[in-house]
Amino acid sequence: MAYKMAMFGCALPEGFLLTRISGGRFSHIRYRYEGIRFLFAPAALGLDGYSRMRDRTKTQFVNLADKFRTKMLEFSDPNSSNMIFTEDLKNMVHLADATSDDLNLVHKMMTRFNQQNKEVRFGSYVFGPVVMRMYYFLNKPDEALQAFRDPELEDFFAQLVTYQILMDLLFQNERYQDMLDVFEIIKQRQHQEGKFPKNVVILTFAACFKLNTPESFKYGMAVWKELKEVGHIPMRRAVTFAAGLALNQNASHVAFEMISGVQHQNYVTIRNLKVAALADLGRPEDALPILRTILDTDVPSQRKQTFSEEVIQKLGVSVGKTTNKELIHEFQQIEKRLREGQHITAQDLNELLCMPIAETVRNPVQDRNQRFLAASFSRQNVGRTKPYPRPGLSDLY
């Protein structure tokens, strides 16, 4: 059941929907209009933990929040002799509402806190990801960009997960060119895990795909070339966005080469893109074996492996352009079997490529390091008895 309601105690912007699952939690957030979605699901960005901390903080500050705001406004004055402590800023970040007064106060407190800690860092708490979650939660992309671009706060937001949250916030607000501008800033900033953070690269190609212009294609191909030159291997989702963009820009040969380099070819996005590229290249006979593979491996007890109706129709047009009656007959027979076996879905390629990324899978050591370095509020895995889920397992179907 979907609810247009307050998200964890905070009013949602117009057009948002939440989907409730068992236990009172929310599986994902999505836009109601035009099928717009987050690329990374809220849980993957740590928003579920952030919302829990908001609830806890608001409970602690019942009848005290306004006095606290007044005090923090005084303390954040550059001429004040008082200090902004870690706990002060943490509390304000979790109390802030989507008002200009609150957002301006948070910015002033961040600036003051960052200035007083330039020489000596008193604590190990990393604020960048948490503040960016606040902007994301309140759906404030302009304020998030302003803070990110503020020279006084450059080191404040220099964490990989911060970049990811900001770019996903821009993605869900259709600010695709702003995403590319942010990517250029990220490339110039030095950080310990390399010049091209994997999730940031995914979001960059997602922005190029959404823009779908000759200029974005040219930019995407330049980024792709740069990645290859430094030995970076793009993740599958980055490859599929780049290949999808190439298809849309009538460069099917480029798309085919890109997806041919993916190690596992049985993901739903990969096989759909491959069939679409072969259809555009006028090689439908090479696409039929891919369709037959699904029929040959159909197991009733497992989820159906599928093709998009859009892709099947594209292939049908390509087959129809041939004079090979045997090929036409073979395609018709395969298509009939696919439909009878419910292997064709109404999802188009855009929907398939933009399916939300549910979570980032890490081992326990990586989880602990990520929580320390990025002050992550992601779901904890301490005491977990079940094995970690295989990444992308649902994408096989």
Rank of each mutant, 00 (worst) to 15 (best):
S51Q: 12
I328H: 15
S100G: 09
S80D: 12
M53A: 12
F377N: 13
Q172M: 15
E14M: 06
G194R: 10
Q263Y: 09
R112C: 00
T323N: 15
Q380L: 12
V254A: 08
Q305D: 12
Y125G: 06
F113K: 04
V382D: 11
F127V: 06
I21T: 07
D66R: 11
I344P: 01
N199Y: 09
P234Q: 06
R112N: 01
N250V: 08
A2M: 14
A98H: 03
M355V: 10
K336V: 13
Q190M: 04
F26Q: 03
N250S: 13
V365S: 12
V200G: 01
A147W: 04
L291I: 06
T162L: 05
M134P: 00
F372E: 14
Q302H: 10
F205C: 07
E310C: 03
A2F: 15
T59I: 11
L73F: 15
Q332K: 14
Y135R: 03
L278D: 09
I186K: 06
D97T: 00
K321M: 03
G49D: 08
E34W: 03
G261W: 07
L281T: 06
S124Q: 13
S80Q: 06
R237E: 15
M83S: 08
Q302S: 12
M355A: 07
V299F: 11
N381A: 02
L203C: 02
V361C: 07
R236Y: 12
V365W: 15
S318E: 03
E34P: 00
I186S: 03
F127Y: 07
Y397F: 10
K90D: 08
Y50W: 06
D97E: 10
K386I: 11
M167R: 07
Y136T: 08
V262H: 05
F307A: 02
L45I: 00
D286S: 14
G261I: 07
Q305K: 15
Y125W: 10
D286V: 07
D66E: 15
Q188G: 12
G341A: 10
L245K: 05
K118V: 15
P300V: 06
F241D: 01
F209H: 14
A206M: 08
R37W: 10
N117A: 13
N248R: 06
M110L: 09
A287Q: 00
R121T: 14
T86P: 02
G383I: 05
V126N: 12
L291H: 01
E326H: 04
N104R: 14
A238H: 04
Q305S: 11
K108R: 15
P387V: 09
G23L: 00
L295S: 01
T323P: 05
Q263P: 02
V126A: 13
L138F: 00
M179I: 13
K140N: 07
N114W: 14
D77Q: 10
C354G: 05
T70E: 11
Q188M: 12
D48R: 05
E174I: 12
N272H: 07
F183E: 02
T306D: 04
I344T: 06
N324A: 04
E174G: 04
Q366I: 07
H28A: 14
L315W: 04
Q249K: 05
I357N: 08
I21C: 03
